[in-house]
Design a binder for these strands. Structure first.
Length: 204
DNA sequence: GTCCTGATCCTCT
DNA sequence: GAGGATCAGGACG
């Protein structure tokens, strides 16, 4: 398979940053509409970017949501203004990346679960110590490693560099809705979305 | 390919 | 002190 390196402009409609109003809406709607959008991390080594192909929504009143039992030092970013990053530590060795949604004071967000790598593939490979493209961003902790997202990015404004989300071309694929991965508490909710047939999705 | 397990530590109870 | 929005590697088929 031929490996093509894409320029950011080729994918991002001239780098149109998603405005804060995009995030300040119903969380489940934002989760669905984030599919096809572009995440870019401008690092000293160069830009690293991927196309979002899998998301999960976490809302108030949902026992699986980190904010379910009120504000704590860990989850306080979730209650802040929308359009910011929530990066948290999990399983003793990994981090996951969320975008904060809804209005300030409401602890909701969208977990980014998988990306299709677009630019900065050599940097991703170095960050991940993996060669195959499908091993770079096909999971929430993998994409955090690949993009070089760090705990220091917790609370970062996603409408300004270095870490931004950009408009992308509308997805041609269909959108599949399922229950969320690894959630055993409470009722099962259809809050996971992914692009049909995309090889970078973490699970079918 | 599928299944199982260990790694490893922060957070909240 | 228990458990978690995970991943990689090994056993097995």
């Amino acid at each position: 398979m031929v490996e093509k390196q894409f320029s950011l402009q080729e994918f991002t409609c001239g780098e149109r940053v998603l405005p804060r109003s995009f995030y300040a809406r119903d969380t489940v709607t934002v989760a669905r509409e984030l599919l096809g959008k572009i995440i870019v991390n401008y690092t000293p080594a160069g830009p690293i970017a991927g196309r979002i192909v899998e998301t999960e929504a976490y809302i108030q009143g949902d026992p699986a949501c980190h904010a379910a039992r009120g504000m704590t030092p860990r989850n306080r970013v979730m209650f802040g203004p929308p359009g910011h990053a929530y990066v948290y530590f999990i399983y003793g060795m990994y981090h996951c990346f969320n975008t904060i949604t809804a209005r300030k004071g409401v602890g909701e967000g969208v977990l980014i679960r998988a990306l299709e790598p677009l630019t900065g593939l050599p940097i991703m490979r170095a960050n991940r110590k993996r060669k195959k493209i499908v091993d770079l961003c096909s999971g929430p902790a993998k994409l955090v490693q690949a993009l070089g997202i760090l705990p220091q990015h917790n609370g970062a404004d996603l409408t300004v560099r270095p870490l931004v989300l950009l408009e992308g071309p509308p997805p041609q694929e269909g959108i599949v809705t399922t229950t969320r991965i690894g959630i055993n508490v409470g009722e099962t909710l259809p809050f996971r979305f992914y692009l049909e047939g995309n090889m970078h999705v973490s699970r079918k």
